[in-house]
Amino acid sequence: MGRETGWKNTVLGDTVTVNDYVIKAEDFNDKGQVFVSISMDREKLKTSPLSAGMEVVYNDRVKVYAQKVDPNYETIKKDGKEFKTGNWNPYSKLDILIKGEPEFDIDVETKKDTYDSKSTGDSVLDVSIEIKNDGDAKAKNAILTIDTAGMDVLKGKKSTHLEMFLKTRLLNL
């Protein structure tokens, strides 16, 4: 899935914010389930009941896994009947995982600061492009296309396919 943010203990009404996603323990029931919601910008995206060992995934980006759900009350038997005693104070232990994404930092450099289209020596514009993936995940099957603003490409290409992109890559156009 990507980056794990670690487990969080939650009680009724607790919220945990991770990368703008808000995970909330909405409710608990006496069957050992926590009702979890995933929201962003005050909009509820997904709600699901979770028992220990279950997970809910939203849009292949956020996963909430219930390590433990404890109703946190005692049950006693009296005259063949079960009674819950003490304060009902349920809690859960949740793992929250956020899928990492690639993030590109693209630097375009030319050999000179200015070019004069009327000058014979400036008839060719040498450009080098450096791409860095500063994100949390590798990029797969990305296509980089350079807009040359109508200029002809004499050497190199305007588009390149990046099958797997983990680190800095230099492209010369």
Rank of each mutant, 00 (worst) to 15 (best):
129 I>C: 01
131 I>Y: 00
121 G>K: 09
51 S>V: 10
101 E>I: 15
59 N>V: 04
145 T>Q: 06
72 N>R: 04
133 N>R: 04
125 L>G: 02
57 V>S: 11
54 M>H: 12
149 A>M: 11
116 D>K: 10
144 L>R: 00
104 F>H: 05
155 K>A: 13
79 D>F: 08
152 D>Y: 08
138 K>Q: 11
76 I>N: 02
157 K>S: 15
103 E>Y: 10
78 K>W: 09
78 K>R: 12
88 W>D: 12
155 K>V: 15
117 S>Q: 08
88 W>R: 12
57 V>G: 03
151 M>W: 13
110 T>V: 07
150 G>F: 03
122 D>A: 04
108 V>W: 04
87 N>G: 10
72 N>C: 04
138 K>W: 09
136 D>F: 05
156 G>N: 00
117 S>D: 11
122 D>P: 05
118 K>N: 13
77 K>T: 15
148 T>W: 04
154 L>V: 15
57 V>Q: 08
101 E>N: 12
62 V>Q: 01
65 Y>H: 14
115 Y>V: 07
122 D>C: 05
135 G>A: 02
73 Y>C: 01
127 V>P: 02
64 V>L: 00
59 N>L: 07
124 V>D: 08
107 D>G: 05
156 G>L: 03
54 M>C: 08
67 Q>T: 12
103 E>P: 02
58 Y>C: 06
113 D>P: 07
96 I>W: 00
129 I>P: 01
130 E>G: 10
76 I>G: 05
156 G>S: 04
71 P>N: 10
114 T>V: 13
139 A>L: 10
112 K>M: 09
78 K>G: 08
71 P>L: 02
52 A>D: 06
66 A>R: 02
134 D>R: 14
140 K>C: 04
155 K>S: 14
